[in-house]
């Protein structure tokens, strides 16, 4: 049997919203350590890797390792029925072909239970090599979302140039071109508003802005986003999921033909 309870069910709903544009169905690997998921988009240029550690759940029980094929589209629809302060329990009974989502209101006056049929999905776990990135930009996730949305108006690609002083996002297309430059914060009251850059080497990389905008669907999970970059290496875009884990998106850069 598998059972995991989250006092703040809305966190799980945000995780699903963060994934479901990039991947519509995926295999959840459940073990004693927690839940992990790894999936590529249909064109194989982007990958998402999710980790939710067992100690982040209010209660967690996993008697044996399980691979659960789940439609994220359907799960998202079911989670829309959850109240914003509801507690969420995810359960898979032994020998069952369904996952049960139970929602309980904070005043414990309302209980809802939904079953979603599990799917038989092909899955293979691909290893992502440990990378010592040349540059890590940390910035407010709302700011990153706004920049990606704005850059998409100008073109299909966004070039991210990072130096020790700042990071510049630029796009050009048929309608014109533009860029936004953020300087490294020197003095901020709140850490979550800061832009900080750890840099060994300056980088300039170009990405399909459409994917960056899909990654930004996970921005409500975290005040800050980490963008880790090296020349000729996929971008790693990371949102923390509270203290319990993270969503990491990987995206191959665009290169000159």
């Amino acid at each position: 049997m598998f059972e995991a309870r989250l006092a703040q069910g809305s966190i799980f709903a945000k995780v699903i919203e963060g994934l479901r544009e990039l991947v519509t169905e995926a295999t959840w690997e459940c073990s004693g350590n927690g839940i992990t998921l790894q999936a590529m988009d249909s064109s194989h240029v982007a990958l998402v890797s999710l980790v939710l550690r067992s100690d982040g759940f209010e209660t967690y029980r996993c008697d044996r390792n399980m691979s659960l094929g789940i439609s994220l589209t359907s799960m998202s629809k079911v989670l829309k029925m959850m109240g914003k302060d509801d507690t969420l329990t995810i359960r898979v009974n032994d020998d069952s072909d369904a996952i049960v989502l139970s929602m309980e209101s904070q005043n414990q006056e309302e209980f809802a239970e939904y079953e979603l049929r599990l799917m038989d999905l092909d899955s293979e776990h691909l290893g992502i090599p440990d990378t010592d990135y040349s540059c890590v930009v940390k910035m407010p996730s709302t700011k990153f979302s706004r920049i990606c949305r704005d850059m998409a108006i100008l073109g299909d690609s966004v070039t991210i140039c990072s130096t020790k002083d700042g990071v510049k996002f630029g796009a050009k297309g048929d309608v014109g071109q533009g860029s936004i430059r953020l300087n490294q914060s020197t003095n901020v009251d709140k850490e979550e508003d800061a832009v900080s850059i750890e840099l060994r080497e300056a980088v300039a990389l170009t990405f399909a802005v459409r994917y960056l905008n899909m990654f930004c669907k996970a921005a409500p999970l975290s005040n800050q986003v980490n963008l880790s970059m090296s020349e000729d290496t996929p971008l790693m875009c990371e949102f923390k999921v509270g203290d319990m884990g993270h969503i990491r998106f990987y995206l191959a850069p665009k290169i000159e033909d």
Binding site: H44, P129, T206, D232, D257
Partner: peptide
């Protein structure tokens, strides 16, 4: 002309 490569090229999955 910019082209989009697959992740497999970078991560030696081929």
């Amino acid at each position: 002309q910019l082209i989009q490569c697959k992740l497999a090229i970078y991560y030696d999955w081929l």
